[in-house]
């Protein structure tokens, strides 16, 4: 199991990811899975360039990302996987990627989104997707920075 962490964060690579998580996880490779980002050449460039120069970044859509993640999960190299939405992670899981834990790291608010914890807000659709992930055996946790103690999603989802 070398997918060190699958993390949902709408800003993808940002301050904490670069500064804290890579160190905490000992990961030397980032895989970003997001359909829209994979289509945008400028964003692909920026994300690739923004990571530390010794950490390779791959930006892939869900279909390619699933193939790549399955491949990487079988290798010993520690990998940090980033996605923007629960739907993407559910897509990966359903395509057979072995994901033990998914971490909610930052999900901005907006119309129709309910605040779950600090900077984590979710829509009803996302709530359903996260529950589906849990049903498939993937643990969902909230851990905003690497030094935080992870909070199980179950404990915040009152209808469980």
């Amino acid at each position: 199991m070398s997918l060190r962490l699958v993390r949902i964060v709408d800003r993808l690579i940002h301050g904490q990811v670069v500064a804290g998580w890579l160190r905490a996880l000992g990961a030397r490779r980032i895989v970003i899975v997001d359909d829209a980002t994979a289509r945008d050449e400028f964003l692909r460039d920026v994300l690739t360039l923004a990571a530390p120069s010794d950490v390779p970044v791959e930006v892939l859509n869900i279909a390619d990302g699933a193939i790549r993640c399955i491949e990487l999960a079988a290798s010993p190299e520690p990998v940090f996987v980033l996605a923007r939405s629960p739907r993407t992670v559910l897509g990966l899981r359903q395509a057979g990627v072995p994901i033990e834990v998914v971490d909610l790291g930052g999900m901005g608010s907006g119309p129709g989104r309910k605040r779950l914890h600090k900077t984590i807000s979710i829509s009803p659709d996302e709530l359903a997707e996260l529950r589906e992930l849990e049903r498939l055996g993937t643990r969902v946790e909230i851990q905003i920075v690497a030094d935080d103690r992870p909070i199980p999603f179950r404990s915040l989802d009152s209808t469980h």
């Binding site: 709408d10 500064a19 964003l43 920026v46 990571a51």
Partner: peptide, 17 residues
């Protein structure tokens, strides 16, 4: 929106560093 939301993460990564 895509300039804002796409850039704010990577740029703050560099900026914070």
């Amino acid at each position: 929106n895509s300039v804002k939301s796409g850039l704010m993460g990577p740029i703050s990564g560099i900026g914070d560093t």
